[in-house]
């Protein structure tokens, strides 16, 4: 019989894995990831975080989860913001200024269009979510 703590860990893993990799099953839920590594913070990620929070509140969007992550490695394009939501492709925005952060809320989340000029490509397939992509 496996010890209890291990079972607990495995249960938590399964639960979190669903939440992290398949947020789209939950319609209406919006996930925003903001890169808060040293390079992101140095390029102004804290301001962007504040602007995103304020704008979301101002526009009455409550179903958004802001996740502060480490750096994606796109240091030339910091600060970076990734938006994942139902009905839109997962999108990474780079060189985000406070104005662009507002546009992300107004155009991407509310208007369902991409913010021109700030879309960046994901640097590599996610090998945890898509193990077959990465070899």
């Amino acid at each position: 019989m496996a010890p209890n703590r291990l079972e607990e860990l495995n249960r938590l893993r399964e639960e979190k894995s669903m939440e992290l990799h398949d947020p789209k099953g939950n319609d209406g839920e919006i996930e925003i990831r903001i890169g808060m590594g040293s390079s992101g913070i140095a390029s102004g990620a804290r301001d962007i975080l504040r602007v995103l929070n304020d704008t979301l509140k101002d526009r009455g969007i409550t179903k958004a989860l802001i996740r502060q992550t480490g750096s994606l490695g796109l240091d030339y394009a910091e600060p970076t913001v990734e938006v994942r939501m139902h009905g839109m492709p997962d999108t990474i925005y780079g060189r985000v200024t406070p104005e662009v952060a507002q546009q992300i809320v107004d155009r991407h989340i509310l208007g369902r269009e991409l913010v021109c000029g700030h879309v960046f490509d994901r640097p590599a397939p996610d090998m945890v979510k898509e193990p077959n992509h990465a070899l």
Partner: peptide, 27 residues
């Protein structure tokens, strides 16, 4: 894409201050 991210697999994906997210990604 030429990149394959093994060591950097979670960088920019999870919240480093939240262990459950690491666990959710095979941690």
């Amino acid at each position: 894409q030429k990149q394959v991210r093994i060591a950097l697999r979670n960088c920019g994906v999870i919240n480093p201050g939240e262990i459950s997210e690491y666990i959710g990604r095979d941690g």
